[in-house]
Amino acid sequence: MKRISILFVCMGNICRSPLAEGVFSHLAKEAGHADRFLVDSAGTGSWHQGDEPDRRSIATARHHGMDISGQRARRIRKHDFADFDLIVAMDRDNVAALRALDPQARNIHLFGDLALGSGEDIPDPYYGGADGFEAVYARLLAGCRKLLSMLGDDSASRSGNTSSVR
Rank of each mutant, 00 (worst) to 15 (best):
M1G: 13
M1H: 11
I4T: 13
I4M: 06
I6C: 01
V9T: 02
C10H: 02
N13C: 06
S17K: 00
S17Q: 05
E21A: 00
G22W: 06
F24K: 01
S25I: 04
H26N: 09
H26R: 10
A28T: 14
K29Y: 06
A34D: 14
D35N: 09
D40S: 13
S41E: 13
A42V: 06
G43H: 04
T44V: 08
G45P: 05
G45R: 04
W47H: 05
H48Y: 00
H48D: 03
G50I: 10
G50V: 13
D51G: 07
E52F: 03
D54R: 11
R55I: 10
R55N: 09
R56A: 10
S57E: 10
A59Q: 12
A59T: 02
A61G: 14
R62V: 01
M66I: 08
D67C: 08
Q71E: 11
Q71G: 07
R72F: 05
R74F: 09
I76P: 00
F81N: 04
D83A: 15
D85G: 07
V88M: 08
D91N: 15
V95S: 01
A96G: 04
A97D: 14
L98I: 02
L101F: 06
P103Y: 13
N107D: 12
L110N: 09
F111P: 02
G112H: 11
L114I: 12
S118C: 07
G119N: 14
D121L: 02
D121T: 03
P123L: 06
P125F: 15
Y126N: 03
Y127H: 11
G129T: 07
D131K: 14
G132V: 05
E134Y: 13
R139Y: 08
L140C: 10
G143Y: 12
G143T: 04
C144P: 01
L147Q: 13
S149A: 11
S157V: 08
R166F: 00
